[in-house]
């Protein structure tokens, strides 16, 4: 940045002229510097604008839907039957499917993910950590359609041997596999949070006669609480938006139920069904996917905002 600023010189004659020259030269604010700044800013803006664009499209496109379907029906009705002649648009039938899958996945992923994080950051030896961490990240890289087939062709048959009469499509199988899918996310983010806890706190705990378990559970995990909660929320929000697994394994039967053995339809799966089907544009059925998408968007947005707030609130703790 300061490249041409005067090199030390002993030559009395040249010094004044040179430094006067140097001071006026526009380096810091040169066109190139400015161009770089705007270029980088534009890249950063892409994701923000995309998000805003998506929100705008969802809102605009769902206006016609809400002109024909009242909010009262949308939030008060329990049936979702856009393909039937007698159409009902009660979001709860889809929302309950999504929530059911999300709860099941959270039950699977949060304890297992946190336990993995604790193991990796506190118990594992260096080389075990070196194997385990990339292994987990590999799990995170598996395409979700593969998880979907895994749910349908492996987990469901397995569950059918345990639960007699379980259908091919059920919320349980989808939920479990969504949970497996988000374990790496919980584990990785929670591990980062645990590692951010200063070693001095662990040292203090050990010096007070703590066992490893006591130091971890009663000092480190509470100290990393903000980060761990944020990892939970981000993972759950990922589970809410998960599409392929629930489309393949959880069924296509919108139904307000909390029974994990039932075939359900998640919001995402409904959007896939309509947008990939032969539903003509302009029909209310077609418009409904924007309303469903809007609800989905608002839920995940709220979860992410919540995660951010929790992280920030607990960041100052140490």
């Amino acid at each position: 940045m300061s490249a041409p600023s005067s090199p030390p010189t002993t030559d009395e004659a040249t010094r004044p002229a040179r430094s006067a020259n140097d001071l006026r030269k526009q380096v810091y604010n040169s066109p190139k510097e400015r161009a770089i700044k705007y270029l980088l800013g534009a890249c950063a803006l892409v994701s923000v604008l995309t998000t805003l664009g998506i929100a705008a499209v969802l809102i605009v496109e769902s206006i016609p839907f809400f002109q024909s379907v009242s909010f009262a029906e949308f939030f008060g009705e329990t049936r979702w039957t856009p393909q039937f002649t007698e159409k009902y648009f009660g979001i709860w039938a889809l929302l309950s499917g999504t929530l059911l899958v999300t709860v099941i996945s959270a039950v699977v992923a949060l304890p297992v993910g946190l336990a993995s994080a604790i193991f990796i950051s506190e118990y594992a030896s260096t080389w075990v950590r070196k194997v385990l961490k990339p292994g987990l990240e590999l799990l995170a890289g598996v395409p979700t359609v593969v998880y979907g087939y895994f749910a349908l062709t492996f987990v469901t048959p397995l569950l059918q041997t345990l639960i007699p009469g379980l259908g091919v499509y059920n919320a349980l199988s989808g939920g479990i596999v969504v949970g497996i899918m988000i374990i790496p996310m919980v584990a990785s983010l929670s591990e980062d949070a645990l590692r951010a806890v200063p070693d001095s706190l662990g040292g203090a705990a050990y010096a007070l006669g703590a066992t490893k378990y006591e130091a971890v559970v009663r000092v480190k995990v509470p100290a990393a609480f903000g980060g761990i909660m944020a990892s939970f929320i981000l993972a759950v929000s990922r589970a809410i938006g998960e599409t392929m697994i629930v489309t393949l394994a959880a069924g296509a039967t919108p139904k307000m139920t909390l029974d994990p053995r039932e075939s359900i339809q998640a919001m995402t799966a409904f959007i896939v069904q309509v947008s990939k089907g032969d539903t003509p544009q302009g029909t209310i059925e077609y418009q409904s996917i924007f309303a469903v998408g809007l609800v989905l968007f608002l839920i995940t947005l709220a979860m992410n905002v919540l995660a951010n707030r929790i992280t920030r609130r607990y960041q100052e703790q140490y």
Binding site: S200, G203, A204, A205, G209, A210, V219, A223
Partner: peptide, 22 residues
């Protein structure tokens, strides 16, 4: 230790922590 390293807990909890686990 060299650097003060209280737990991010209350003063009271800091004092009782070691005694409680023991």
């Amino acid at each position: 230790f060299q650097k003060p390293n209280p737990f991010p807990k209350t003063i009271y909890k800091n004092v009782t922590w070691g005694a409680e686990i023991n």
